[in-house]
Design a protein around this nucleic acid. Structure first.
Lengths: 142, 142
DNA sequence: AACGAAATTGAATGTGATTTTCAATTTCAG
DNA sequence: CTGAAATTGAAAATCACATTCAATTTCGTT
């Protein structure tokens, strides 16, 4: 059985919150983890449906919110559509405005600077959004 | 008459694009410029309506898009709602998750780093979004 | 000042993603 | 096995945003 770690994390979360373990949640988690990149609920629903035709859109939608609450997924939005990615080390995004390609990057220095700036205003930063929009190598040719 | 510079800028834009000068557009621009901060179209509509009850929501909405196209306004979105701010020098935002306060800041260093990172991936950055979410001084007390 | 083509207005309606409702079903502690 | 509580999924509601269209207004030309 794949994705043991994530399944156990989900199980703990469900137990702690008096929620129930269901086949649907398990199946959706599996499909979500098998996807690389940033999927919308609709995307994910289509993929889930290919393997589990009886699972409805609403369940996929609700399960993604659940996975976000459980810390297994993160919601992003680059273009007005909610997209989900598997939670992993903090990072920012480069988004190509022509082809939609999304590249992730990390930068300690920017993080440090953010905290320094927030400190000036007495702010305590909890999270941030940092996205660079432009054209990727391939799309600069046109 | 107030806001002469902006009114002239709008007039030029209208003329260049074969659009027409109307009382509504003038009134909406005035109200928009009188607001400090980041307003939604609904916010703005309410304020416009207070002075000009005959102006409809749609006109406010369309005028804000016009002002964005004309470079007089900028659209932002921190919480899913489109918000408009008066155009001014480039800056990023600090947003308080409790009270909604929005503080603007600038940072050359971050801008430079962004370009350096984008360069690594062959990206040409056209614009970016950089928002720090957290708690402001006042809201940390609670 | 008046004409008329073209743009604008604003109420109503459409759109599309997201969210909620609710009856039927499933889970799971006892 | 039982029953209370959670979950499911189809349908409907919601919400912000965007468009439609007939009536009105603007403005270059007469």
């Amino acid at each position: 059985m794949a994705n043991e770690v994530e399944k156990r994390a989900l199980a703990s979360y469900l137990e702690e919150h008096n929620l129930k373990h269901t086949r649907q949640r398990d199946a959706i988690l599996d499909v979500f983890l098998s996807v690389t990149g940033h999927v919308t609920s609709e995307d994910l629903y289509q993929r889930v449906r290919a393997e589990h035709p009886q699972i409805g859109y609403t369940t996929v939608y609700r399960t993604m919110r659940l996975l976000c609450d459980a810390g297994l997924a993160q919601e992003q939005s680059f273009d007005g559509l909610a997209r989900y990615e598997v939670s992993h080390a903090h990072h920012d995004h480069l988004i190509c405005l022509r082809c939609g390609k999304i590249i992730e990057f990390e930068c300690e220095m920017i993080e440090a600077t953010q905290n320094e700036i927030a400190g000036r205003y007495g702010f305590r930063v909890l999270r941030h959004r940092h996205e660079l929009y432009g054209h990727c190598v391939d799309c600069q040719k046109d």
